[in-house]
Design a protein around this nucleic acid. Structure first.
Lengths: 337, 337
DNA sequence: TTGTATGCGTTATCAG
DNA sequence: CTGATAACGCATACAA
């Protein structure tokens, strides 16, 4: 290893005191122009780079966000999250923060694990991605301020966490209205995994909207399972076996919609003539399937960005109580409906 | 904040010396069973969690891998990488390492930036994801040992970096052989972005194989651009305008293949009857397009895993010279050919 | 503005 | 096997 350059080296080189060097580098305004320039010059010359471990230890922070992403049943992070992850990285960079990534299995992360990370100083704030549950840590009777933890894709405000996600109801209402306008009167909803929050919100959004339109009884529910393509394909099999088939199918995800579409087309039925299919998420491939899929685009990138901002606001005390930030989705009509 | 528990607290509680506490926790075998149990008990009671900043500072390491992912022209991390990222996370967890993620714009990351991260102690090893270039740092005349940097998806061994990627030639040879066997004698290759390494490797793999089969003159090249769907669609437009059209199209990515497929179908041509289309990557949607796409599945997860292992082996001195680890892909024939 | 002294929490060295 | 003590590199309250 090339011997690392430390503040002490700069101090020796410049003849200044180490604390002056430190100040010149971290608070340029608290030092004379002269010394600032000198220090900067020598620092550049010697290739000084401030040691983060030392800085973190001294300041008691780590300036890093820990992203905890659930990987459902051994699967990969959903491609749905890549955009969000990008948003997180971009915003973090803008705020001078690091992003640490950790996957966890299953659907819920234990609060105590999170507290552990926080206490160990691995990170000083945490982003929960699609975590289903959150039981507030016990030994911590809400002592002053919120935890620097925010949930994305899942509303956990009731558990005391700021949350940011898509305004899901809006999206599904748009789908329903569109389908009704197209003349459909008989619907199927392809559900997500059992016990997942989105699930309820989304199904209820559809159900309620249809009820409001007097079509509450014309909705059946097909158990989908995971948000992936095979699960959509499986639901389509069930669908095809129905004696009295709905004419419009609303899926919990684009992946399911694609799987459903594929199976329907293979059966010889036509989309959208025999069956209209709508997805949800806004994956890029939906614009290129044949027929292209009608879907609701979630503002993935923005969700990542906003989540980081909320985190920052919690840390600097501008946010002091749980809140839900629900971002508007974009409904896009394509050939599948 | 709940006052953090430190080794000093445990020392006070147990009456033992702080160094003994440290040892009991980090080297349980170097203390008596008695004290080990005592320390463990008290640590659990007080909820002790070792401060990573302090540990890192003292040990001079960070136990974290920095993943540098290029995001082409403001786009998101390719969904292609999600699997790989999962592999990285899994293996890192198994080795007790952290994963830090950072995106960088453009296609090449400067070696000096990487050295900066390393020197700052942000991470002690780096994973370059699809980085096009690497100019070895200048001020560092290969002083003892390799840099703890590995490249994935791009062979940078010539620049002195261990690299892990897919055996790309094998994949394209398989595609060519398959298409020839299906009776095709006239081919198009939809290229990737200009100046990207994959590009050359892949095109040459196709070209060489065809030459070997006496069909070297029967290949045209369509400029694709980015590895995304619009780029495939654009190439398809060019293709459709051709007077003498090839019957088989080989794409640089599944995304391009999907875009191409979509445009071809819209034009009224039939796949695979009029045009056979093959992709590359093994994205999950390829199995659910209509027709399903023939493609080459890259071992994404494995690449991530192996990359981390290589990194670990470099650090512990088991690997001391640049090498390429090329993992075998899986060719899968579907309806599009 | 700059220098002095001390703390941050662990690990490692070296005696005992 | 355990204890005392010196790093590790930086930040900061306080004094000059």
């Amino acid at each position: 290893m090339t011997k690392r350059v430390t503040l002490a080296d700069l101090a020796e080189q410049t003849g200044l005191n180490i604390s002056t060097i430190s100040r010149a580098l971290s608070r340029p305004d608290r030092v004379s122009n002269e010394t600032r320039r000198l220090v900067e010059k020598v620092a550049a010359q010697l290739g000084y780079e401030t040691n983060v471990a030392a800085r973190n230890l001294s300041r008691g922070t780590s300036d890093t966000i820990l992203v905890l992403a659930s990987s459902f049943s051994g699967q990969a992070i959903s491609p749905v999250f890549t955009q969000t992850l990008l948003g997180v990285c971009e915003e973090a960079k803008a705020l001078g923060l690091n992003v640490m990534l950790r996957q966890y299995l299953g659907q819920s992360i234990s609060a105590s694990d999170v507290m552990r990370y926080l206490q160990a100083g691995v990170a000083d704030s945490v982003l929960l991605v699609a975590s289903e549950q959150w039981e507030p840590p016990v030994g911590r009777p809400s002592d002053r301020g919120m935890l620097p933890v925010v949930s994305i894709f899942k509303d956990l405000t009731s558990a005391g966490l700021a949350s940011v996600m898509t305004q899901e109801v809006d999206g599904y209402v748009a789908i329903v209205d569109h389908l009704v306008e197209r003349g459909h009167r008989h619907f199927a909803f392809v559900s997500g995994p059992q016990g997942i929050g989105h699930e309820h919100i989304r199904y209820n959004a559809v159900k309620n909207r249809l009820s409001m339109l007097g079509l509450g009884q014309k909705l059946i529910r097909l158990e989908g399972g995971p948000f992936d393509m095979p699960s959509g394909a499986k639901a389509a099999q069930t669908f095809l076996a129905l004696k009295n088939r709905p004419t419009a199918v609303i899926c919990c995800s684009d992946a399911q919609a694609l799987g459903f579409l594929h199976t329907i087309l293979e059966s010889g039925l036509r989309v959208p003539d025999d069956v209209a299919i709508a997805g949800y998420d806004g994956m890029d491939y939906t614009a290129f399937t044949s027929p292209a899929l009608t879907t609701v685009i979630q503002p993935m990138l923005e969700i990542g960005r906003v989540a980081v901002q909320v985190l920052a606001d919690i840390r600097n005390g501008r946010i002091t109580s749980p809140r839900l930030v629900a971002l508007a989705p974009t409904f896009v009509i394509r050939q599948s409906t």
